[in-house]
Design a protein around this nucleic acid. Structure first.
Lengths: 225, 225
DNA sequence: GAATTAGATCATATTTTTGTAACAAAACTT
DNA sequence: AAGTTTTGTTACAAAAATATGATCTAATTC
């Protein structure tokens, strides 16, 4: 699960980031509206933690952009003002939840998890792709009615593929999505090779096809055989 | 993808170049305004990384030239000054993005990719030419609804042709565009012959026409039969 | 704190792409 | 038509990318 934190107060930004990373999320952060806008265009986030008052723009505009572009990320608005007006505007625009500063990290965490849970339950919590069935609310994957015992990285990799069927995903994009900016790319993609290999093996062990196609020189594409 | 780096500080220029080449781009670099002006007249770049302050001129003039000539290259402006004025001028003139020194290479990289993606997504990310369909965002080419399994060089060659329909491309220009200065030309064009042949074969295998016409003594022209 | 597991790293194999060279065919020249 | 140059074809070698299996480390569980 990948989260973008948009918050201009450095200390708060870093605290939130560290906290959520300890919870197992992959986080990226920025202080600027323009930067956030760029990031949501380029990458896919499961959730955006969004401060309204930013030095170079209004967070609500980012929310508008997300909704206009039909980008599926959840949005948790953070605001200093307890203005009822702002709150209403935010929720009307389609934010998933609203929290007022100051707040306890535990509460932020609870709301983040609640949004993600809600989004997953949203109507269909099962995704089916050929022989594969993914039960998102239980973070479980099945092949031919047999449970796959996937590790967290493997599961996230599979979800990322499922969400991007028939599209070529570069190794850079995959690394970015599963590990965030942190990892020093360029040096090696060994970790990707290894996880791809293990995921393929586990799927095929249960009689599944090899849905993960290698696109030489680019990356991988998840598609029916 | 071919990038021209216009930057007068040698160290920075070389660092950027090496970094982007590792990302798979073909790069050329220069420190001088006049030299850059010459290059954009002669060659086709997908992107120009452009420093504003150059020893023999202002980078913004190069930007003006590109826009006046309707040259399609993307432009990423690099500037030491964080002057709002410069930034506005640059963006008003039609630059795609702006980055202020000092910066992290990763950020430069993100912006470069973002520009290229935006340009490709621009309305239509599919290019159609007769029986050929090219899905630029997936770097895939199709003939009569059948996927062509092209290698990277073959794909780049095809894209170069598609972007220069009905124009005679000399072997020198092709070599220049696909391999940059690096390759020792003059000795032989065997590698071009080979790639042309393989690309023709793959297109024709799927029932496509031979769009790549040989222009004896000159090079090749991509055109309908 | 020992045992287990996930995840990263490394060395090594395998596969795919790319470049080269030698030769054949075709196109121009005279 | 013979000779010259350019282009096409093929097979192969070099290089690059990917896959695999083993090992190591850090985290988690018991």
């Amino acid at each position: 699960m990948k989260i973008l934190i948009v918050e201009d107060e450095k200390e708060l930004r870093d605290t939130i980031c560290t906290y959520l990373e300890n919870e197992g999320f992959i986080c990226e952060k920025t202080a600027h509206y323009e930067d956030a806008l760029e990031k949501v265009q380029v990458y896919t986030y499961d959730l955006v933690v969004l401060d309204i008052t930013l030095p170079d723009g209004n967070g609500l505009n980012l929310l508008r952009y997300l909704k206009n572009q039909r980008i599926q990320s959840g949005v948790l608005i953070v605001s200093a003002k307890d203005s009822l007006e702002d709150k209403l505007t935010g929720l009307e625009l389609g934010a998933d939840d609203y929290i007022t500063k100051p707040f306890h990290l535990a509460e932020l965490n609870a709301r983040v998890k609640s949004i993600i849970r809600r989004k997953n339950f949203d109507g269909n919590n099962e995704v089916i792709f050929q022989q594969l069935k993914i039960d998102i609310s239980n973070t479980e994957a099945w092949v031919n009615e047999q449970l796959l015992e996937l590790t967290r990285k493997e599961y996230e990799l599979l979800i990322y593929f499922i969400h991007n069927q028939n599209r070529v995903l570069t190794k850079e994009a995959i690394a970015e999505h599963l590990w965030g900016d942190h990892m020093d790319m360029a040096d090696s993609f060994d970790f990707i090779y290894t996880h791809i290999k293990n995921l393929r093996r586990k799927i095929q062990e249960k009689g599944g096809d090899n849905y993960i196609k290698t696109v030489y020189g680019m990356g991988y594409k998840f598609a029916a055989s």
